[in-house]
Design a protein around this nucleic acid. Structure first.
Lengths: 260, 260
DNA sequence: TCTTGACCTTGACGCTACGTCAACATTTAG
DNA sequence: CTAAATGTTGACGTAGCGTCAAGGTCAAGA
């Protein structure tokens, strides 16, 4: 007792094209082939097909499924590995949802997706409210006047330096080194020094102080900034996306913990 | 001031291949092209690139990004739509994780991914423990002896009937009709009648009774079974996967509510 | 000046899991 | 006997680039 290709397709809830595909890649061969080339499937093939569709429904890829069917012993292993991947995907999705949500808010408020001066320390036009709220009422005014006081060449040089810093971070993040490695910590040091060059932020304020209260504020500023890089997709974009930004955040956090 | 293709690739944290691709599909043209065909990008192009990478990092597709950049006014709309999609994906992932987890347990206990007699009412060999636990100590024994008592032809006919039912459910689920539609409810009726034909289950026990307690048990059995079809990927596979199984569950639930 | 090496160009294939024609042969129903 | 259903193989399309391949360009050192 066997069925034609359409028959099992209907029984199993799939299409004949899929069955031909599985035949092509050797995942499921028909149990019998007619003299005319027609594919026929028997009970055993149907069970195999059900298994395939079951595993596929769980999100496994066809090569993995093939391997699991060959050796059902490591089915548990394959499934466990897949489960890990699924959980990572879930985390990634959660972060993306948070990012999109926040970006919607930012775009609603700011108007543009990314301002031209984004990343140059912080945005001096789009981030007025946010800067005032997070770092104090006069922080924005200070930073703004400092920026406006620069000549075109100075601005250009500053931007160049900022971009270079970002590019180097990206290089570091994608090179596979750890956030607490010497190279990454050197980058963190450079980043903090760079921050210190921007008036109107806790970083620059602290530069002239020696008391501990100032150092505590700097530490909070640096770590907080790292979080913001990850949370705000517009900043994250400057570090090669969320993954790169996460690397920067981790490196900064470790640096702050050790040195500030 | 402009940069070569490698320069911005490094600054923005992407690759030159990606930039060529964006040029090919018209998403981001170089601001200038040398007599030798070299691509050069300026500040404005860099900002555009950052926007693109930002949106890409949020999970948007390139065509959508292109559209958003053309008209930033509906960026909010596009992002909101994308957010919906992301949430659906999150739900799907959550269901998959639950399914995989449960399948791992089942495989650990049962040994095989899907038994040959799966779907023939319930599995008479792999589901001993589960059947006993869920439907009573003697349910398994009853069902098993009933099954063993059948001749080969009878078994074959029964399997055929079971498969036909599953195939028809799949057809109904994929045809776009509602679970509470007349056609789906007719299927639900047929399903319950089919269940009644399996000894050792609450469904068959009730067939001979007239009291209300029996009807309540049948109702609980039918709705519970529907949930199990969705929760257990091995059953779900018989109804075309989780989506199909969900359709069956909904149809059964509605039928039980109205008629039992 | 010649060479070396780094960087640039335009194709074009590969990847996932099939959907979707196309062109043609065969089986089945009326 | 014909029309409709169903079967076959072959090949392109999909998303977003990675990855050769084969060959021009450019800056710097011997």
């Amino acid at each position: 007792m066997d069925w034609s290709i359409q028959d099992i397709a209907r029984i199993a809830g799939t299409t004949s094209r899929t069955l031909r595909h599985y035949d092509d890649i050797g995942l499921l061969k028909p149990s019998r082939t007619g003299h005319n080339g027609y594919r026929y499937y028997n009970q055993a093939a149907l069970v195999q097909l059900q298994r395939i569709l079951l595993l596929r429904g769980l999100g496994l890829g066809l090569p993995v499924i093939s391997q699991v069917l060959d050796d059902e012993a490591d089915a548990t292993k394959a499934l466990a590995g897949h489960l890990e991947w699924l959980k990572q995907e879930q985390d990634r999705l959660a972060r993306q949802i948070a990012s999109v949500t926040q970006t919607i808010e930012a775009v609603k408020g700011g108007g543009e997706i990314m301002a031209e001066d984004m990343f140059d320390g912080f945005d001096h036009t789009q981030y007025k409210d946010e800067v005032e709220e997070r770092w104090g009422k006069d922080a924005y005014a200070k930073g703004d006047s400092w920026w406006r006081g620069m000549s075109a060449d100075e601005k250009s040089a500053w931007k160049q330096r900022s971009r270079q810093l970002g590019a180097d971070w990206i290089t570091a993040a994608t090179s596979g080194i750890a956030p607490d490695s010497a190279e990454a910590q050197a980058m963190a040091k450079r980043h903090v020094e760079w921050l210190t060059g921007i008036p109107g932020t806790p970083a620059s304020d602290v530069a002239g102080e020696v008391n501990d209260g100032g150092k505590a504020r700097l530490k909070a500023y640096v770590t907080g900034l790292g979080e913001m890089y990850v949370a705000d997709a517009r900043f994250a974009a400057n570090y090669g996306g969320q993954d790169g930004a996460a690397f920067v955040r981790d490196a900064l956090a470790f640096y702050a913990e050790q040195n500030l």
